[in-house]
Every structure is written in C-alpha cells, then in structure tokens.
Computed example of a mutant assay.
Amino acid sequence: MDPAAVSPESFNAVTLFMRADWVVKLVMIGLALASLWSWTVILDKLFRFAALNRQADKFEDAVASGRSLEEIAQEAGERPRHALPRMLQGALKEWRDARGKSGQSDGQAAFLIQRIDRVLDTIIARESQRIEEGLGTLAIVATASPFVGLFGTVWGIMHAFQAIAIQKNTSLAVVAPSIAEALFATAIGLVAAIPAYIAFNAFSTKAGKFAARLEGFADDLSTAIQRRLSERV
C-alpha cells in the first residue's frame, strides 16, 4: 500500500475486509456465519427457557391450589408439550391401571412406585436432552472461533510480510494496514467466541436447574401416589 494513501478510513471494518487476502476473507466469513449461528441458538434458548419456566410456574401453582390432580391433568390436553403435565399424566395413568386391579399387596404397591419412577425418569431424560439441544453448537463456536481467527491472523501476517518484502519498504505506514487486516480476523474470532462461551455456561446452568426442577416435581408426584396407596390399605 502507498503510505500516502493511508488514512483513518483505511482501518474501518469494510476496508480491512476488502483488502484482506482471500484466505483471511474466508476465515472472516466463516467466523461471521458461526457468530450468526450462535446468536440464533442464544435467542432461541432465551425465549425457550423463559417460556418453560413460565409454564412450569403456572402448572405448579395449579397443582398446589388443592384441585384434583385428575382435573389438572385433563385440562392439560391429550398431548401437552410441557414436561410437567406429561409427568402428571404418566403417573396418573399408572395409578389408574393399578387401581383397576383388586387388592394391592405391599409388593405390588412397591412395584407400582417403581413403574411410576421409571416413567418419570424417562420423561425427565428426554426433556433434559431436548433443552440441551444447541448447547453443543455454542461450545464448538466458543472453543474453535479463537483458533480459527488466529489461523487467519497468522496467514494474514505471512501474506503481509511477503508484500512488505516485495515492496522493500518497512515503514510503519506500510506495515500497519497489513497487520491490521490480519489482526481483524482474530478480533472477529473473539467476537464470535465470547458471547457463545458466556451463553453456553449460562444455559448449561439453566438446563441443570430445570432438570432439577423436574426431578423435584417427580419426587412430589411419587410421594402423592404413595400417600394414595397408603390410604387404600
């Protein structure tokens, strides 16, 4: 680059991108797409966790209101999307199947509780897997983006030194724009990685808390069924 042509506009993002080597451009485009991908996951998780917790609060309030569990389960519909009503319906189904049989021995009652626990554990496992979808994407972007950006920087610096050697001019006005182009790739890598890293840790914590909430609800359901069985004895 002609030193006389260097100006503040030479260091804006668009100019740095357009002037960069084609390999560095590919790195920048890839990192920008990875950042867009991670932000799509981040926004989806933000709205999803908010909706899940809001629905869970509403359902738990209904259960704690003292109304019949059968009535609450019926209001949830045949195929509720939320895990809590599915857990309630699954537990009540096992309870109805056992109630249709004549006299329950202690062994049969214990077997019923085990069946209910298996049903609830299955629902919890599937729901935990569902809410963790997308976290792998955030982990990949968070860990890989800085290294991809660093690769673009190293490649750009090598290309810049080659151009400097050809021009046989090592003045700062010649070196600075070329180095800036290379470092811009690392900057984009960090811009992609930092939000993904923060979001991954935040949503992993949220997913763990929600799974614990499901497990607590499952324990309460199991206790309620045991109480009903003891009342029948």
Rank of each mutant, 00 (worst) to 15 (best):
M158W: 11
A163R: 15
D106M: 08
L120A: 08
S222A: 13
I131V: 08
R19S: 08
V27W: 01
D97F: 15
L88I: 02
P146N: 07
V148L: 09
L26Q: 05
L183K: 09
E75Y: 10
E75W: 13
V63F: 04
F203D: 01
T122N: 12
E231C: 06
A5T: 15
T40G: 11
A83Y: 00
T186D: 09
T122R: 14
L52Q: 05
R115L: 10
A13F: 12
A110N: 06
A193P: 03
A20I: 03
L31P: 03
V63P: 00
E9T: 11
L36V: 05
I124L: 10
A211E: 14
V27T: 05
I29W: 10
E215I: 13
M1S: 11
S105F: 09
T170H: 03
T15W: 14
A62I: 12
R54H: 14
T137V: 09
F147C: 09
D219K: 15
A142P: 09
E9Y: 14
V23W: 00
P3I: 13
A110S: 12
E231H: 08
S105P: 02
G66F: 04
W37I: 01
F111P: 15
R126L: 12
W95P: 03
L88K: 05
E94M: 03
V141S: 00
N12K: 13
F59R: 00
P8V: 14
L46C: 13
D97N: 14
R213P: 07
D44M: 09
F147M: 09
A182L: 08
N12G: 06
A196G: 00
R213N: 14
F11K: 07
V24S: 08
L112H: 05
G189R: 06
G90S: 05
A185D: 03
D61G: 09
D106P: 01
R99T: 12
R130I: 11
A173G: 11
L120H: 10
G90V: 04
R99A: 08
F49Y: 02
M158G: 10
E181Y: 02
A218I: 09
T186K: 06
Q104N: 07
I198K: 00
E132Q: 05
L190W: 03
S222V: 12
A109Y: 08
I188N: 04
G90C: 01
W37P: 02
T170A: 08
G156E: 10
T170M: 11
S10Y: 10
A192W: 05
D219T: 14
G100V: 05
A110M: 06
L33E: 03
W155N: 13
D97Q: 15
V6D: 09
L214E: 14
T15K: 15
A109K: 04
I225H: 01
K209D: 11
S222G: 12
I123Q: 07
V27C: 08
T15A: 15
R126E: 10
S128Y: 12
I72V: 04
M87Q: 01
S65G: 04
P195S: 03
A76G: 07
A62K: 13
V175R: 11
G103Q: 04
L183H: 11
